[in-house]
Design a protein around this nucleic acid. Structure first.
Lengths: 332, 332
DNA sequence: CTGAAAGCGCTTACAG
DNA sequence: CTGAAAGCGCTTACAG
């Protein structure tokens, strides 16, 4: 069988308790016995059984990740990939492990959260999205289970979250366009069930209002989802009414659709997106995009959660990650 | 405190052993008591503690994944992302969890493997790459710890692995080019420390030989790594000697570099790559690419490993995933 | 089919 | 600073 604490104890001529204290770096152990124990561990090539430690400690040093996505899209959305990267970099630095599950629907996600919590497999949970009436948030909150959400939740109780300032990002973006003498600016936003959709729309409106430019409702469209097709369709709708100088979309994929439309119809309109996904760099005409720094979002989410788990005070229970406007000009 | 098996036992008026047998679906339990126990579990909202079960069972139903990559590249290489996707889809179907770690170097990877094995955290390990003298493979093999490797290992002992048939894929690709009347075909391969590099080079040579076309050593280059820059450099080298009808590269990024070169120099050469990454679709001139079906590789790796863990016989200890040639023609 | 008991490999309050 | 003992929440061979 595997080497246990008892074998080490016997060889080192101490009690198992003492060996355990050496493993967990308890302060009240004499240097002499510590060396004795280490020598015995080396000789036997002893390695602590993490499962047993976890049971006794009631902690796993593991974070549970819920990826909100369907089978086919798993890992294809650069946002989630980048966020995961940030999460795992911080977690690894702090010796936390990561376990993930993806759910095809909010119900599915809830099931996984239940499992994470009930099975005691993880010390904390990271949610990669926040819905309007989020069952996972409600449940985790009700159970007082440690968690953090990437994306500002709706009814902010005492929840930890990280997000961009979507209002400000869009506000600044529209300002930049106005300074480039775009007067008529269209807007293709996402479903209002996402809080960032609301925030971005709000930022757009305020920027126009502040400059005394009126918001033309016929230039503002709510897309059903974030796809190229929807972007194309929305742009067609806008152009059937009036051709704007610029169009702000809240997702690069929507932006791709808009670009496709203007290319086909030979019209010249500045187009912007959000997320700055790798493909956006290669578009022709060019796509300006707001980089939301998904990796930073993930990194700081993990940081907030792990600090809380370790009993460290977080200055605030949320973290705002700055965005970066990546401007691109068509070469034509 | 949390509800345990004892609470359920008390309420249902049976022994903890009986409750345990119900949880683990032991066959020799009367239907009556089973219902009694279920009722009690419902009433108390009892959930088994997975950690405790694992300790008693000496199994975690968790797979450990080693991602061979440096911080900056984690999750950026589509190959690994797609493979992970396949792995997690199969694992989830079989109720296995996944834990991952990434290593910046082979030594780093070995450390994580040690940790996975020693800590008893995972039941099996999936390696996402195979090196020439692979320390992880050697170690896992020596410890008789269950594992599978994505990529055919060098010294095939009794190891489980999945891979494409790289020889055949390249052979077929070159044949296709010959049929399109390319006579002079250049080859830009990867470092020979990767077994797939060797296989692809071999496939290229055989296809030429079979058609009685001689292999021109001056058209065959071994790139240092899989980057656009290397592709560009290699193509420059080839063209300084002779301009071929086509160039086969063993990675899309190398292909991008070649495309860049021919675009700048206004020459017309058919270019092919491997992996068919998303960006390859958008190249101009067009890039033909071999889709290696990374998701299938991951899926079948998980399948092979989990079947072995569950004590099921695998027909063979490896699995070959078919490739698909995605041909693209320049529109010019 | 069911129970009492020992065990999985650690941790930790208690006592010294 | 160190040890004996009870405990973390399950499982399972043994006996009935």
């Amino acid at each position: 069988m595997a080497i246990t604490i008892k074998d080490v104890a016997k060889l080192a001529n101490v009690s198992p308790s003492t060996v355990s204290r050496v493993i967990s770096k308890s302060p009240r152990i004499s240097e002499a016995t510590k060396q004795l124990v280490y020598a015995a561990m080396d000789e036997l090539k002893y390695k602590p059984n993490a499962i047993a430690r976890n049971l006794a400690n009631a902690s796993t040093k593991t974070l549970g990740l819920i990826i909100p996505n369907q089978d086919e899209n798993l890992f294809k959305n650069p946002f989630f990939i980048q966020a995961m990267r940030g999460i795992s970099i911080y977690a690894q630095k702090k010796n936390y492990k990561i376990m993930f599950n993806y759910g095809a629907s909010p119900e599915d996600e809830l099931n996984f959260v239940h499992e994470f919590v009930n099975s005691k497999w993880v010390d904390g949970v990271i949610l990669l999205t926040a819905y309007e009436n989020d069952l996972c948030i409600e449940y985790l909150n009700h159970e007082s289970f440690p968690f953090v959400v990437v994306g500002r939740p709706y009814n902010i109780h005492d929840i930890m979250w990280v997000d961009n300032d979507n209002f400000q990002a869009t506000y600044n973006l529209v300002n930049t366009l106005i300074q480039k003498s775009c007067q008529e600016i269209g807007f293709i936003g996402g479903p209002q069930k996402y809080i960032f959709s609301k925030d971005r729309l709000e930022g757009y409106k305020r920027a126009l209002e502040l400059r005394n430019l009126s918001v033309h409702p016929e230039l503002v469209i709510e897309a059903m989802d974030f796809t190229e097709d929807e972007g194309y369709r929305a742009m067609a709708e806008i152009c059937s009414r009036s051709i704007p100088h610029a169009v702000v979309t809240t997702d690069d994929l929507l932006g791709f659709g808009v670009l496709k439309y203007i290319k086909e119809h030979g019209i010249k309109v500045k187009v912007t997106g959000f997320n700055n996904i790798p493909l956006s760099e290669y578009q022709q005409p060019a796509l300006t995009s707001v980089d939301i720094k998904a990796e930073d979002l993930g990194y700081n989410a993990a940081k907030l959660l792990i600090r809380a788990l370790e009993g460290m005070e977080n200055p605030v229970n949320h973290y705002i990650v700055g965005t970066e406007l990546v401007e691109r000009e068509s070469t034509a």
